[in-house]
């Protein structure tokens, strides 16, 4: 479904990503973990071309995103993204936030979009917030709305960029629960996260990134039972 080949990214003279390759199959839940500054977020942002890679290929559903003639807006409709800072549209109500893209991009009509939005709002128990503005919501509520906003477009894959690191500790749980529900419904996703226990619970594959290099790429079980010194060191650090 998604195939990354020899991806490199430089910011000026700094090599942030050095020759990254991996694959994601339908139904996979890939967790990207690693110490701060290892390039995790940059890697994720390269996948939907919010950050333009210096070289390499990203092939998603047969389209090479790094080629000049890739229709990025069309690709992004099928590749949702959830941001650390939620990025809800402040000037729109919750309902408008949810329905803006599907309606304006003609993915569905207004009636269907609203029906779907209501269904999703009920799923996350925020139906009563339909007409509220983002400024009146808590961080956890904002992030859950942001997650269902990407679901509105019925993406084939969802990218999560540290979805809980801007949240109050009390609100982390509700967001992780929602992501877990999506995981159980067989959604394909890539998650950058520091919540190592959460990763252990839901990820099918783990990619361990350090200093811009893939230090480990394999199954959940292999990662958490690895005898590798660096991985053990990393796991010890994040567990404390």
């Amino acid at each position: 479904m998604l195939s990354v080949k020899h991806l490199k990214k430089k910011f000026g003279k700094i090599n942030v990503l050095k020759d990254i390759s991996f694959d994601v199959e339908k139904g996979d839940i890939l967790a990207i973990v690693g110490p701060s500054g290892s390039g995790k977020s940059t890697l994720l942002r390269c996948l939907n071309m919010l950050e333009v890679p210096t070289s390499g290929k990203i092939i998603f559903e047969g389209v090479n995103l790094t080629s000049k003639d890739a229709n990025l807006p069309l690709v992004r409709e099928k590749m949702g993204m959830v941001f650390q800072q939620f990025n809800l549209f402040d000037h729109l109500t919750v309902m408008e936030n949810l329905t803006l893209a599907p309606i304006k991009l003609k993915v569905m009509g207004e009636g269907n979009a609203k029906r779907k939005a209501i269904e999703l709002l009920k799923m996350i128990d925020l139906y009563d917030k339909m007409d509220s503005y983002p400024s009146s919501l808590s961080g956890g509520q904002k992030q859950r709305i942001a997650i269902i906003r990407t679901l509105m477009m019925e993406p084939d894959i969802i990218l999560f960029d540290e979805p809980t690191s801007a949240l109050d500790p009390l609100m982390v749980g509700e967001v992780l629960d929602l992501i877990k529900r999506l995981a159980n419904s067989n959604k394909t996703m890539i998650i950058v996260s520091h919540e190592i226990n959460f990763v252990r619970n839901i990820a099918s594959k783990v990619l361990f990134l350090d200093e811009g290099k893939v230090q480990f790429y394999g199954s959940n079980k292999e990662f958490f039972t690895s005898k590798n010194k660096y991985i053990k060191e990393f796991l010890d650090k994040v567990n404390n």
């Binding site: 919010l50 807006p73 409709e77 941001f83 990025n87 809800l88 304006k104």
Partner: peptide, 21 residues
Amino acid sequence: KGQMEAGLALGFNYAKTMRYI
């Protein structure tokens, strides 16, 4: 700048992100 990124990530092009967001 997250507002622009969120618009782009949903599938809006630059012009539509400017117009609606």
